[in-house]
Design a protein around this nucleic acid. Structure first.
Lengths: 238, 238
DNA sequence: CGACTAGTTGAGCAATATCAAGTCCTGTGG
DNA sequence: CCACAGGACTTGATATTGCTCAACTAGTCG
């Protein structure tokens, strides 16, 4: 099911310590000493936009840290409809439930081409026992997952469709470039609880007003100020 | 801030072990041995409907297990509007973030008269270290909090207002009696992301159709079957 | 070049918000 | 015990929003 791209093992210690996203990632707080406990393979994996990472109900033997890209967690309802429950950005942890459940609870799919680290549950369980750093870090991750859910609810499922689209654009904004990579309209609809047509209309309207500008098909330049005012976020420094 | 009703301490061991909600509550898995580690006071507290348990930003020194009643966790937005992020039912844990943050992240308020156990963070941290049972139980609680959030999003923030109200009624349903205690219309609005008028209209309509029947001002008898069909839940045994 | 998919647009309609009156409880003070 | 003030709830009329259905357009990949 999952796309395995195992790399050479045996150098996890070095690789994790040098990881570019380490300061944000699950293992960020580990000391060199802690790393000595890592004996099982931590693999890098890459998946293309649209590819599945895991599905709800799949056996959960590893959890993931997102290095690059964007992953959506979807909750499928009995009636076949779906709702995106959370978007995970680089630095975030995916599939924490592997630590306390034998199966995943969401359908996880890459929205953009993504790179992740796959960490076996056994590794995390061991570090959880032996490294107070990681133990604390893990609680933080759980907390973050809850906060992210709350945020998702209040930002992406509250207010008018216009507000939600504006907030999504800001959420996806890359601070460095001031641009964002927008998912397909259908995905946007599932994220915001609106129809694809409404999503399309609003984005088209944003473009006409110059609030966003298309650089390529899915790459947009954003007028953050304008978006914030649409989103109902008022500039504190006014 | 919080309503302290300290009871006689020193008998936590006995009191927790005999607790009626113990099988559902945080300490459910503890062995008699584990209880020996509990030296700090675990207090019973009671708060009336409408009273605050804690506020976002309050110093988080304890967490809570709900014994009876109903507590809502609200996220306040910068613009003054609010959104109920989760409802906690008896057996649930409130304020887990105390374990990894020095302040609470929500505004917690009783929707019905409630009884809770207040457990100092130090107690949980100690048991977390010394009892594998509780450690596992804690991870479960975090996971449950995430699942609850997801559920809240998909059930209470998705679909038409009618569906949402129906789902809320079913969510609040007491299995024993087949009845439910409905919060005020304004609270319902904040929970479902609809206006109080819409909530009122829908409930009035449910009453006219006999889908729900008022026993007292806030106590209703439910026709679960009818509600399920409104909620879009189809009887598997059809 | 043509089929296909994603995106856009339009018109009409249904659901929900908004604004504005009422009406019904409930607790309070006479 | 009753009258009344205030809040919670209900209801109506109207404005908006977003959905539905349907057609059309523009890229994209064989």
């Amino acid at each position: 099911m999952s796309q395995d791209i195992p790399l050479s093992n045996g150098h996890n210690l070095v690789r994790c310590q040098q990881c570019g996203v380490r300061q944000m990632a699950l293992f960020s707080d580990l000391t060199d000493d802690d790393f000595k406990h890592v004996h099982l393979p931590v693999d890098d994996i890459s998946i293309d936009a649209g590819a599945m990472l895991y599905n709800a109900g799949d056996r959960a033997l590893s959890l993931y840290t997102l290095r690059h890209g964007l992953v959506k967690l979807t909750h499928y309802l009995s009636d076949g409809s779906q709702r995106v429950v959370r978007l995970v950005r680089p630095g975030g942890t995916i599939g924490l439930e592997a630590l306390c459940s034998d199966q995943f609870s969401h359908y996880a799919e890459a929205v953009q081409d993504s790179h992740l680290c796959r960490i076996p549950v056994a590794v995390v369980e061991r570090l959880d026992r032996e490294s107070p750093h990681l133990h604390q870090q893990l609680l933080q991750r759980w907390h973050q997952a809850v906060l992210d859910s709350d945020q998702w609810l209040t930002q992406m499922s509250t207010g008018s469709a216009r507000e939600r689209v504006a907030r999504l654009c800001l959420f996806l904004r890359d601070d460095k470039t001031g641009t964002c990579l927008l998912p397909g309209r259908e995905d946007i609809g599932a994220m915001l609880g609106i129809t694809t047509e409404t999503a399309s209309r609003i984005i088209a309207d944003f473009r006409r007003r110059g609030v966003v500008t298309a650089l390529t098909r899915s790459h947009f330049s954003l007028d953050s100020k304008a978006l914030q005012s649409v989103a109902g976020i008022y500039d504190e420094a006014a």
